[in-house]
Nucleic acid binder design. Structure first.
Lengths: 353, 353
DNA sequence: CACTGATACTAAACCGGTTTTGTAAGTGAG
DNA sequence: CTCACTTACAAAACCGGTTTAGTATCAGTG
C-alpha cells in the first residue's frame, strides 16, 4: 500500500476550514447549527469533513462549552469493593437510567492514589453522586471550591448536602423488633464499614443511624447494644462468608444474626450451609436491602426492602436539577421502605408452645 | 453575611499568577513540577491558590495534555439492560480494577439518541471496551477515525478488533453434550440478543458461535437445531422469568432448557418454582457464565464457568497497552472455561435403570 | 435613491491550562 | 575576568473547538 502518511494526525476544524475554503466559524456552524450558513456551504464543508475523516473533538468541544456531559459516581473504595454488591449495582442502574435520558455518560470514580479527595479534585464531571461514604469536610470543600453539584445517597443528611435516604433508624428498629418478637435474645449484629460505632451527634452516619434503630428495639425488651455481639464487615459476599464462619467459631450460642446488608447475610447463609447448619432452625438471620438474591436464597431472607434503583434515580434527578440551576423541591429526599418477612428468622416462641 | 460576590466565578491560573505576582508558567510549575521554581515562589503561589480557592481545572488540563484519564465501557443498550446481569457486572469490576491501577476513571457509555455510533463520536475517553455487541463497521470506522484504541469482549474476533473471549463453541458443545448424555432430547435453547440466528461465516457473533457448539453436540446424537425449540432473550432476570413461563405454556413436553446465560436460567427456575414445578425432575436447565447466584439457587445450576472478572481485567490491560503505544502480546486473547456439573440437569438415564 | 434589515460569511477573542522559547542573573571553571 | 552553564522566571504559542463582533452583499421599503 502506498500509505505516505507517517504522521497520523487527525484533522482539526482548521484543516477542514482551509480545505473547504471556508472559515472555522462556518465549519463549526455546519456541525452545530446549519441554519446559520448557506446550504451550499454546509454541504461542501460536510463533504470535506467526510473526505478528510474529521470528527469534532469532543474534549475540545466540551472544554469550550464548559461542560463534561458526564456525571460521576464517587466510590469510597476500590471498584472491586464498592460495586461488589447487588444493592449498589441497583443504585448505579438507577443513576444510569437518568443519565442516558439527559444524554450524559456515567463516570465511575474510584479513589485516586488511595485518596477520595484527590479523585474529586481531578474528576472530569459536571456533578457527583456519593454513596456509602462518610463525606468529610475535606471532600465537601473540594466539591464546593470546584463549584461541583453533588448529591449523597445513604450519607449523612446535614444542611449542606442534598441527600436521598430511607428512614434507616425506623427501618432498623422494625427489623430488630421482628427478630426480638420471634424470641431471639442471643444476637449478633453485623454492621457496615469501619465507622459503625462512631456516633457523631450532629450528623450520624448510616451505620450509626441503623444502630440507633436496633438499640431502640433492644431497649424495649431491656437489652442494650452491649448485650449483643458486634461485628463489622464490608458488604461483599466473600466478607459475608468470612463473618459467617467467624460467628460459628465464636461459640457464643448466637440464635440470630442481624446484618446491615443482604449480601453479607447471604454470605453467612452460604457458609453456614457448608458447615452443615440448618437455617433458620440452628441459626437465624435478618438482612437489609432486599436484593434480588434475598428472595431466591434458601431460606428466603427476612429483610428490609429499600428501593435501590429509585434511590439512584432520585439522586441523579436531583443532581441534574442542580446542574441545570433549577431549584430542588426538597434537599433531603426520604423514600419509603418495606419490612419483608420471609423464612430466615426462626420463630422461637411458636416452638415453645 | 457580607457576601459581596454576586458572580461566583472560580479563579483561574491567570488569577493566581496576577495575585501572587508570578507568571502563569510559574503557577503551572508550582502544581506540576515544583523543582522547576524556587521554594519561595512555590510556597507563595500555593498559598495564594489556597487563599483564593484555586483548584486547576481538570478538563483544561486534560485538554491541553491531549488525554482524558478515562476509558469507556460501551454499552450496546440502555444501562438498565446491559448491566442488569451479574456476569456483565463482574466484567465491569475486572475492567475497573485495572483502571484504578492506572489512575483512570471508568466511563459507562450508553447509546446516545439510541445510537451507539453517536455515543462513540462523542465519548470523552482515551479508549473503549465493547461487550456483547455486534460491532459493525460503522462503529469501528468512527473509533479508527477518532484514533481511539479499543478492545472487544465476547465479540467477533476478526483481524481488526483486539478481543478477549473463551472458546464459546467448545464450551457450548460441552454443556450441550452433558445435557444429551443425561438423556434429554426434548430441548429448548434460549439464545442471546436478536442476532442469534445470523451466522455470518467470516465473523460469527457470540450467540452464533455458541449455537454452533450446541449443534455439533446435537449432531452427534443425530439431532439438528431444527429439532429443538429456539427462543431468544435479553440477559436479565425479568426476561428470564418471562421465558420460563412461555416455555411452560408451550406445551411441548420439553425436558431440558439450555440457556446461554445463567441469569436467564435462574429466571426460568424462579418462574417454574412459582408454577409449582419440581426442578430438575419436572424440567431441567443448564446455564452459561457461572455467576455467583448459580451456586446458591435451588437447585444449583449446571453451567459453564467463565472468568468474567478476568475477561474484564485482560481487556482493560490490553487497552492500556494500546493507549500507551506498547505492542500487544496477542491480539486475540482466549482464556479457559470450566464445565460445572451441579444439580439442575436431571439424569434421565439413571432414572430408567 | 438612501436607509434598514437580513443573510452569509470572516477575524479574532476566548475557554484554562501546558509547553516552548527567550532572557536576565547567578555560578563555577579556566 | 570571561565564558559556559545553570537557575528562575516570563512571554507567547498552543491544544481545538465556540462565540462575539464586525463586514460585505443584497433585498426590500418609503
Amino acid at each position: 500500500m502506498a500509505e505516505h502518511t507517517t504522521k497520523v494526525k487527525r484533522p482539526t476544524i482548521k484543516d477542514i476550514a482551509r480545505e473547504s475554503g471556508y472559515s472555522k466559524t462556518a465549519v463549526s456552524f455546519a456541525f452545530n447549527d446549519p441554519s446559520r450558513i448557506s446550504k451550499k456551504a454546509c454541504e461542501q464543508i460536510l463533504s470535506t469533513a467526510e473526505k478528510l475523516g474529521y470528527i469534532p473533538d469532543p474534549m475540545a468541544r466540551n472544554f469550550s462549552l464548559r461542560r463534561h456531559l458526564s456525571i460521576g459516581f464517587l466510590l469510597p473504595q476500590e471498584i472491586q469493593y464498592s460495586l461488589n454488591n447487588p444493592y449498589t449495582q441497583q443504585v448505579l442502574l438507577g443513576i444510569g437510567s437518568v443519565c442516558e435520558k439527559f444524554g450524559y455518560t456515567l463516570t465511575l470514580i474510584p479513589p485516586l492514589n488511595e485518596s477520595v479527595t484527590e479523585a474529586v479534585r481531578n474528576a472530569a464531571v459536571d456533578g457527583l453522586i456519593t454513596m456509602g461514604m462518610q463525606v468529610d469536610m475535606d471532600i465537601v470543600s473540594v466539591m464546593q471550591t470546584r463549584h461541583l453539584s453533588y448529591v449523597t445517597i445513604d450519607g449523612t443528611a446535614d444542611k449542606q448536602m442534598p441527600s436521598v435516604n430511607i428512614n434507616d433508624e425506623e427501618a432498623s428498629y422494625e427489623i430488630m423488633k421482628t427478630v426480638l418478637q420471634a424470641g431471639h435474645r442471643q444476637l449478633c449484629i453485623i454492621g457496615l464499614g469501619k465507622d459503625v460505632f462512631a456516633e457523631n451527634a450532629t450528623s450520624p452516619s448510616l451505620p450509626s443511624r441503623r444502630l440507633a434503630g436496633y438499640r431502640r428495639a433492644l431497649e424495649e425488651v431491656n437489652l442494650s447494644l452491649d448485650d449483643v455481639t458486634m461485628l463489622v464487615c464490608e458488604p461483599t459476599l466473600e466478607e459475608g462468608k468470612k463473618k459467617g464462619n467467624e460467628i460459628l467459631a465464636l461459640d457464643k450460642n448466637i440464635t440470630c444474626v442481624v446484618a446491615m446488608s443482604d449480601i453479607v447475610a447471604i454470605g453467612c447463609i452460604l457458609s453456614w450451609s457448608e458447615a452443615g447448619k440448618k437455617i433458620p432452625q440452628d441459626i437465624s438471620i435478618a438482612g437489609f436491602d432486599n436484593i434480588d438474591e434475598a428472595s431466591f436464597i434458601t431460606p428466603k431472607l427476612t429483610t428490609i426492602d429499600q428501593p435501590a434503583h429509585e434511590k439512584g434515580r432520585l439522586a441523579a434527578q436531583a443532581l441534574f436539577q442542580m446542574i441545570n440551576k433549577a431549584p430542588l423541591e426538597s434537599v433531603h429526599i426520604e423514600i419509603p421502605y418495606t419490612l419483608i418477612k420471609r423464612d430466615s428468622v426462626f420463630d422461637l416462641t411458636s416452638q415453645q408452645l
